[in-house]
């Protein structure tokens, strides 16, 4: 198998076991240059193990990995010169200052970025003299991304980038990732946030129990579900589910306190639900139609909801 041009990551039949558990169970995929590729799955699904095998910090039991055409096991030092890594759990001494951390990591590489420029891009200029212990979660995460970018990498690994961040910081992080990609870099990320995968990734591999159970663009994954939409409304009255289930095409009806969810085919669902409600004299409020999301894809593929 020769390295195809434009392919940045090649993984074939990757297996990694720990005592008593197969963390990664025979997975294969490729990532193309310039992609944002996401690995989505619940905690413990094997995402971090996979990403760490790709980074070369963990040795797989079986399988073949090529990153930028290099074998992470044999060419580790050469590879680490060309990739950027942000770990899910890593730390630096609390008594280190922001600029010192960047300055230190810059010395590890042959062609580092200018420290000022990097601080500017990461919006850390004001914090350059702050101790790491004094940074907020979002600032610390930005610093770790800065360290992952200091060597001008061709490929960046981001493991659970936004875990522990508030929604605002999370959104800021997403636009940052898009900016990084706009510079022509390839991004491989793992997440257990559906919305993150859906909004950010060009392609998503859904992983559960160490296996890839689906791999496509978020839209194709959703489309593959069929065209099931849902209509949600609120009502103060008791609702006879049978009356709604009798609507042509409706698959099922869920009631959660005063909210009712009607599942059915996309075309004409809203109109039919509204008609049925009026025909039955049910007063309703804040009615809305929702297209399916990756959450539904995950639910239908695994039969369970992803937990944060």
């Amino acid at each position: 198998m020769e390295s195809v041009s434009g392919v940045v990551i090649e993984v074939a039949e990757l297996v990694k076991t720990y005592p008593g558990i197969t963390a990664v169970d025979n997975i294969s995929f490729t990532v193309r240059q310039g992609e944002i590729f996401g690995m989505l799955g619940p905690n413990g699904a094997g995402k971090s193990t996979t990403i760490e095998c790709l980074e070369g910090v963990r040795q797989p039991d079986n399988g073949r990995i090529r990153i930028l055409g290099l074998d992470p096991k044999k060419d580790g030092f050469k590879l680490r010169e060309r990739i950027g890594i942000q770990f899910q759990s890593a730390a630096l001494p609390d008594r280190l200052k922001v600029w010192e951390a960047i300055d230190l990591f810059a010395t590890f590489y042959k062609r580092p970025l200018d420290c000022h420029q990097l601080l500017e891009t990461m919006q850390l200029t004001e914090k350059r003299d702050a101790y790491l212990a004094k940074l907020s979660g979002g600032q610390k995460q930005r610093l770790f991304i800065a360290l992952a970018l200091v060597n001008q990498p061709e490929l960046v690994f981001l493991d659970e980038l936004t875990t522990g961040l508030d929604p605002q910081a999370r959104r800021a992080m997403w636009s940052l990732v898009q900016e990084i990609r706009a510079q022509g870099k390839t991004i491989f990320l793992t997440t257990h946030f559906m919305e993150e995968a859906e909004r950010l990734c060009d392609r998503v591999a859904i992983i559960d129990h160490g296996q890839i159970i689906a791999l496509d663009t978020p839209q194709n994954l959703i489309n593959a579900l069929g065209s099931e939409n849902r209509v949600i409304f609120a009502t103060a009255q008791p609702v006879d589910a049978a009356a709604l289930e009798a609507i042509p095409g409706v698959h099922r009806v869920e009631q959660i306190r005063d909210r009712v969810v009607v599942y059915g085919p996309k075309d004409g669902l809203v109109g039919r639900v509204v008609n049925a409600l009026e025909a039955n004299g049910i007063a309703f409020d804040s009615l809305q139609a929702e297209p399916p999301t990756l959450e539904d894809v995950f639910l239908s593929l695994t039969g369970k909801e992803i937990r944060n």
Partner: peptide
């Protein structure tokens, strides 16, 4: 302590010898 906190792990992810 550095190993326990993940500091060494971060260094190991760089080309630092």
């Amino acid at each position: 302590t550095r190993r326990e906190n993940g500091v060494l792990r971060r260094f190991a992810a760089s080309p630092l010898r």
